[in-house]
């Protein structure tokens, strides 16, 4: 019994001695592969951060379609701040696909804000009919942001602002299956909106 154990132990020791050199080289190879991979990721993301910083300073930087969500978000914000809303719209689709719920929620919030600012602009120029669809789209943006991240309090606040401009009402009787939001006219006592007859 004891002899058997000692023999197995000796066999194992012999096996380890034979395999040791190979195992060590293998481990070293794996560690170097890991170093190369993590170093490459570090380098690439540092480059992304450079682009993010440039965009924040107002300098456009090329961004590939497969860029990570934070970089796409930075470019989106660049488009939003430079009134390039159509290009921003194209980026929104990419961001939706890039994952990362927190970034998607923030992108939705900022995009909704952009639409709201456009709508305010139209309201000040006395064009409420053009403003209303924008406000409704912004509401959907804020709702989507809150579905993605209920803790995004700025989206709650701005949704409240948009809802007071155009309140939702049930489109059908409560019996109906379809209970989507319906829209009614604009509230007219919002600051900055001209009142009275034109």
């Amino acid at each position: 019994m004891h002899k058997g154990v000692a023999r197995v132990r000796q066999e194992l020791r012999l096996l380890w001695r034979r395999a040791r050199s190979t195992v060590l080289i293998g481990c070293l190879g794996l560690a170097i592969l890991g170093l190369i991979a993590s170093g490459w990721l570090l380098f690439r993301n540092a480059a992304h951060n450079k682009s993010i910083a440039a965009l924040a300073l107002g300098r456009d930087a090329p961004v590939g379609d497969d860029a990570p969500a934070p970089l796409l978000f930075a470019r989106l914000q660049f488009f939003i701040l430079h009134d390039r809303i159509d290009e921003a719209q194209g980026l929104m689709d990419l961001i939706e696909r890039a994952g990362d719920r927190a970034v998607r929620a923030r992108a939705r919030l900022n995009f909704g804000n952009a639409r709201m600012r456009l709508a305010f602009d139209l309201l000040q120029r006395a064009k409420p009919d053009s403003a209303a669809p924008l406000i409704n789209l912004a509401k959907e943006d804020y709702r989507q942001a809150l579905r993605l991240d209920p803790d995004l309090w700025d989206a709650r606040y701005n949704l409240d602002v948009a809802m007071r401009l155009i309140r939702d009402y049930p489109a059908f009787d409560s019996k109906g299956d379809e209970m989507r939001a319906g829209e009614k006219g604009l509230w007219t006592d919002v600051p900055g909106i001209p009142r009275g007859e034109p």
């Binding site: 993301n45 924040a56 990570p68 709201m116 700025d154 606040y157 701005n158």
Partner: peptide
Amino acid sequence: LRPDIAPQPI
């Protein structure tokens, strides 16, 4: 409106 949320680096 509450202001936009600024993008953060990775």
